[in-house]
Nucleic acid binder design. Structure first.
Lengths: 168, 168
DNA sequence: CACAATACGTCAGCTTTGTTGACATTCCAA
DNA sequence: TTGGAATGTCAACAAAGCTGACGTATTGTG
């Protein structure tokens, strides 16, 4: 069915064997651990989690965004996001302001201390990414991004594309 | 400090700008969601979670592995793994046998129904991976793997390498 | 042999982060 | 103007991680 002999395939299709795909799956699993390891250490000190990191990241990326918009980017329920957001607001890292046009909306911004944490997390994560990029070289990086983009859900890719070309 | 003007860098270093790195970070985040989406759907039906998937994956990959070995691959505590393993054994998906040489060890294998679930999960995940690989092409795939490997922790990479060359 | 170390399992309790359900507020359109 | 849709909050629960403590069987060592 899925595995098997894979007889006389063209040399060019060898990268599509189940074994190659399995290696890719494992690489993805192990790499994601490294990807989150450094920010996780910083977050643990402040007793925050990855959910806080994600919220901070995307608020930084899209200042003034609404809760609803953040929700669809993060792909979680509003209740789940709300808990995280509440602690960030209480701790003075995020400012929530009532919308001027639509008063139901809350617009989210990082405060100076929120921006400072964002910077610390971002720096830690980028350091590792930079080392990996440097080790692999520009051609590999292009391929890396290509495969990742092809792996996203349709809807997710829209979010990604929308943000991609913000500060080109 | 980390961002800034980045003046007159060689063309060859443009892929290391903070903006490029940020895109890579977001690509990683969004792609990982796609990466887990299909198995998650299957798991939800059977009220299992990703933790079960990971255990099943690596037991399939290293049949007869011990609890301790699985622990160090997965990077979780034994209490956490035990909870998952117990349900898998109760449900008849995993068999745990006392070691022949060292009777303290338990060797883990997938039962036929465990192997069937592994196959279903694996097929779903590979389908997406295959589509992404095919869309990106062999050169991109090579780069993808290179960057991921460079992103791993030192210790994690050992686990990865050890498994990589099993069924080459 | 006695005893420390190892491998595994389990109990209790806590945290983070996801979920659903219920509800208040605000806006808009019939 | 009023009822429904949209936005956001509170409460309660579940999955899956964690620490700490302890029991048991087995192994290896002084």
């Amino acid at each position: 069915m899925s595995d098997g002999l894979q007889p006389q395939m063209g040399q060019s299709l060898l990268f599509l064997t189940d074994e190659q795909l399995r290696k890719g799956i494992e690489a993805m699993f192990f790499a994601y651990r490294g990807f989150t390891a450094d920010p996780d250490r910083i977050l643990a000190e402040k007793s925050y989690g990855r959910a806080h990191h994600r919220a901070i990241h995307f608020i930084h990326r899209s200042p003034g965004t609404t809760v609803n918009n953040l929700l669809s980017i993060l792909g979680v329920t509003k209740q789940s996001l709300n808990r995280v957001l509440r602690t960030l607001i209480e701790d003075g890292l995020v400012a929530s302001t009532v919308g001027r046009q639509d008063k139901r909306e809350r617009h989210l911004h990082l405060t100076p201390s929120g921006a400072a944490l964002e910077r610390a997390l971002s720096d830690a994560q980028r350091d590792r990414m930079r080392a990996a990029y440097r080790a692999a070289g520009p051609a590999a990086v292009a391929g890396f991004r290509q495969v990742l983009e092809a792996m996203m859900d349709e809807e997710t890719r829209h979010h990604y594309e929308a943000m991609k070309d913000r500060a080109e």
